[in-house]
């Protein structure tokens, strides 16, 4: 009996393994930055080149989302209305305009609305490299101590928010 059960069992195990493999998204590369303090930077703000966006000052003291976007990014456009909705709900969102032109970035904000408390302007994409960004949009959840607690790759959907980001933000809000 074992003679037949053993290969069958091995086959079933292999099927399960491959099945799990199929559900994984190879584009979601785990970030080594999760659990570490957010990389610090100073960049000009998108709306005003004279005013600096100082990450050490902005990205701490409150739970926030740090959303990397660009006006040329199609998935960002898809995500944008939901960011607007989150901002209306009182979620703090900071932006990083990635490899964009100032005019295009400002036009985007003007036309589609501004969900961001402040947007840093990263024309060269150097800061994004420090954050391990490899595709836009990407969103980091940052806690009150300025530590990255989660990285979301791709546009945030209402489902993502309900299942992962929302509960995490609620939990972090309750932490000292």
């Amino acid at each position: 009996m074992l003679k037949y059960l053993l290969p069958l069992g091995l086959f079933a195990a292999l099927l399960i393994l491959l099945g799990i493999g199929l559900t994984l998204n190879p584009r979601e590369v785990p970030s080594p930055l999760v659990g570490r303090p957010a990389p610090t930077f100073t960049l000009p703000r998108l709306d005003d080149p004279e005013t600096p966006f100082d990450s050490a000052e902005q990205l701490r003291g409150r739970v926030s989302l740090f959303n990397v976007w660009a006006s040329w990014c199609v998935a960002c456009r898809q995500e944008h209305p939901f960011l607007m909705q989150l901002a209306r709900q009182g979620v703090t969102i900071y932006g990083l305009d990635y490899k964009d032109t100032r005019e295009a970035g400002l036009r985007w904000i003007e036309r589609l609305g501004n969900p961001y408390r402040a947007v840093a302007f990263d024309a060269a994409g150097k800061v994004a490299i420090d954050w391990g960004v490899y595709g836009v949009p990407e969103t980091f959840v940052i806690d009150k101590q300025g530590v990255i607690r989660y990285k979301h790759i791709g546009p945030i959907t209402p489902k993502d928010w309900e299942e992962k980001l929302g509960p995490l933000v609620d939990y972090l809000e309750k932490q000292p």
Partner: peptide, 8 residues
């Protein structure tokens, strides 16, 4: 690079 993007 590993510090930013991981072993990947």
């Amino acid at each position: 690079l590993v510090n930013r993007y991981g072993d990947f």
